[in-house]
Amino acid sequence: MKTNYLLLALSIPLFSLAQYDYEPSPENPFGAPNPEAPKELLDYAPLIGECDCKSQSRKQDQTWAEPIPMKWRFKYIMNGMAIQDETLKADGRHSGSIRQFIADSTKWYVHYYSAAAPTPTLGTWKGGKTKEGAIVLYKDQKAPNGTEGYSRLTFSNINEKGFKWIGEWVDTTESVAFPFWKIDCTNGKRE
């Protein structure tokens, strides 16, 4: 009987480790995509790693503030079934997202949180990859004057050196766009 317990005790750690093969590890610090995840998980594959970026947002008077140095880190989470990112900004206004692709809706769902203010309910954007290779996400959002529209977030110019990102308010026809935040991450990437 003692032998059976010993064998069981020894097999539990091996079984436990095998089920987390795609989590970040010393050998793979940003994790790996799980082969059982939806193929769309690879939409973010070029962003996995860490980029040195410049973050720039609008001031109260609607002019652009000076760019702020920022690190943007993307990694696989949930054993390679989703993606988490975090921004570490020199001004201390850090933020992050959890990104999951829901196959039934064929869309990405991105849940955003920030250190700048408590986040009791996460804002959620949804969208996907375009034919041109950009990733575009939307969330319903009225303009300050009450006009119906969306908060649109776009990753573009994605390549081995980095990417660009822009946050904009757009009207429902997307013919009017007002950028409120932009990030340039084309200074190179560490994987």
Rank of each mutant, 00 (worst) to 15 (best):
S156D: 14
I98P: 01
E50W: 00
Y22H: 13
P118M: 02
A143S: 15
N79M: 06
A32K: 15
A115R: 05
V170D: 12
D184S: 15
A177Y: 04
G49A: 00
A65V: 06
G123F: 08
L47I: 07
A115T: 07
S95N: 09
I166K: 12
G146H: 04
F178D: 11
E36C: 00
N4G: 02
M70T: 15
L8N: 10
I68P: 01
A45W: 12
G162E: 03
I158E: 08
E23G: 01
F30V: 00
W165N: 03
E174C: 07
M1Y: 01
T173K: 15
K131R: 00
P38H: 02
E168T: 10
Q141N: 13
F30Y: 15
I12C: 01
I102V: 15
Q62A: 13
Y112F: 14
T147V: 10
P67K: 13
S57W: 14
S95R: 03
D61T: 05
N159G: 10
S97M: 12
E160V: 07
P46D: 08
P33M: 08
N28L: 07
A65S: 15
L10Q: 11
S156A: 11
P46F: 09
C53Y: 09
S55H: 13
K89L: 13
T147G: 01
L122E: 11
I12V: 14
A117N: 08
I158G: 08
K71H: 11
N34Y: 01
K71E: 09
T3S: 09
K107C: 08
L42E: 13
M78H: 13
I98C: 06
T106A: 15
K126E: 14
R93Q: 13
Y76V: 04
T3H: 03
Q62W: 14
L88M: 12
E40P: 10
H94A: 04
